[in-house]
């Protein structure tokens, strides 16, 4: 009876150890990958109708649509706070090239940015937005994410920046 208890305890211990090993085994490669976070390349057409120096705004126009994303550092993937991201698109309120279609925002302490803007509508065949990191501390990156559906009311894009 007691020996069967020990056996059971041994079994539990062994099982726990095996689980821990398994979990570590899964975690280590994940961390190894994270330490090699690759920089985000600029997308084709990302810089089209870009306007240098767009002001930081509370929101672009009347809002109703959310552009969100993160900004991280190359290598360790650490979030970057206070980074300026410019956003523009063809929306219900204006063209990509209109100055009032452009606005910028800063990332919070978690490297997250959120900017409200008017609803993006399909233009030049696709419902898409434009984002730029262009502040100079890191290399400039232009993104051009495409909405899965033109009725979406948000769009996200993520930056991994490398030092300039």
């Amino acid at each position: 009876m007691s020996s069967s208890l020990i056996d059971r305890r041994a079994l539990l211990a062994a099982g726990g150890a095996a689980l821990a090993t398994g979990a570590t085994g899964l975690l280590v490669p994940a961390r190894a990958r994270a330490s090699g976070v690759a920089p985000t390349p600029s997308m084709r057409g990302g810089s089209n109708n870009y306007r240098p120096g767009a002001p930081i705004v509370e929101r672009i126009g009347g809002g109703g649509f959310w552009m969100t994303g993160t900004v991280r550092r190359v290598g360790d993937g650490a979030p970057l706070a206070g980074q300026r991201i410019q956003v523009w698109a063809h929306t219900t309120e204006g063209y990509e090239r209109d100055p009032e279609s452009h606005g910028a925002t800063l990332t919070d302490e978690n490297g997250v940015f959120r900017l409200e803007m008017p609803q993006i509508v399909p233009a030049f065949g696709q419902a898409h937005g434009h984002l730029a990191y262009d502040s100079g501390d890191f290399q400039t990156v232009f993104l051009r994410p495409v909405m899965a559906s033109s009725s979406d009311t948000s769009l996200e894009a993520h930056f991994v920046l490398q030092p300039a």
Partner: peptide, 18 residues
């Protein structure tokens, strides 16, 4: 309407396959 988008298309470097 949007010169850079048309220039990209004509140079075959547009992000849109169409």
């Amino acid at each position: 309407t949007s010169p850079p988008d048309v220039v990209d298309a004509l140079l075959f470097r547009s992000p849109t396959p169409f």
